[in-house]
Design a protein around this nucleic acid. Structure first.
Lengths: 144, 144
DNA sequence: GTGCCTTCATTGCATATGTAATGAACCGGA
DNA sequence: TCCGGTTCATTACATATGCAATGAAGGCAC
């Protein structure tokens, strides 16, 4: 078996290459790490969201969430508060600066992603989309 | 836009989840890192292979290759030598222990991968395969 | 051959990351 | 109310990683 034609390797290489393209945008142009980018994405999309929900929806662990949200707060992109209902948790909301930063970063990231996907045919994109969805189900529920 | 339905995120999450399944096998069961696994894969497949070729074919940089091959040598899985033609390079060959370790790890990794892919239909696997190949081309050559 | 530039692997160092330890807060039962 | 167990975020520490610096080796011009 050649490494280059081994499916798991091909998947990893393509995903890394695609991700690198986007990190170049939100990382280099906007100074966000991958974790910060994902968290900002979720926090922007919610009125307010707590730490448990963040960890669950990003596949990040609690330490990563704690560190990345701390950095986002230091940069003035989000606010952290402690909910009275459960003082162990943290509640996050986006700031106006965070919102505008995200909006600019998102449009550039989307443009870069579309530039890549735009080099594929409609049929290829559909195949990829369906294949990925199927793989997602399969990983969560393998055959024995 | 919801993070969970954003294509780049879906791709990254599925690739990570799939990779984690395999790391569990070659990492936990055989004590190999991802870099070591990839390098052993290539070294096993070649009579002998040099450092430049390894870096090129794994998308690892030279520091990663240097460190991972050092660990593989420490474990007795590969041998490193200096070619007389160009004494700056390193030449790697697999040891009998390396070969048997790889063989066992590979069959288990393959089995795990097949257990996941086996939960997909033939059509889904074909779609994924073609979609990935197309994305690979597109990443290397985006539309503008 | 000698000097100078390039190309390698390796090493050093600063930073990031993962895992275990800590401590705050909560909950349920006595 | 108090105590023990549980669930959180955070911190500490050891290790990994990325990047720049180093030094060996090669190649070319002279």
């Amino acid at each position: 078996m050649q490494l280059e034609s081994f499916f798991p390797y091909r998947l990893a290489v393509v995903a890394e290459a695609f991700s690198r393209q986007l990190v170049e945008v939100y990382g280099h142009d906007h100074g966000l790490t991958r974790e910060e980018w994902r968290l900002l994405f979720l926090i922007e999309g919610a009125e307010e969201i707590n730490s448990l929900e963040l960890a669950r929806r990003t596949t990040l662990d609690k330490v990563q969430v704690s560190r990345a949200t701390q950095r986002l707060e230091d940069k003035g992109l989000i606010l952290r508060s402690i909910p009275a209902e459960d003082r162990r948790l943290r509640l996050y909301t986006i700031t106006p600066l965070g919102r505008s930063t995200f909006a600019r970063a998102f449009s550039q990231v989307e443009a870069r992603a579309n530039a890549i996907l735009g080099a594929m045919t409609e049929a290829e994109r559909a195949a990829l989309d369906q294949g990925l969805a199927a793989l997602h189900r399969a990983v969560a529920n393998p055959a024995i």
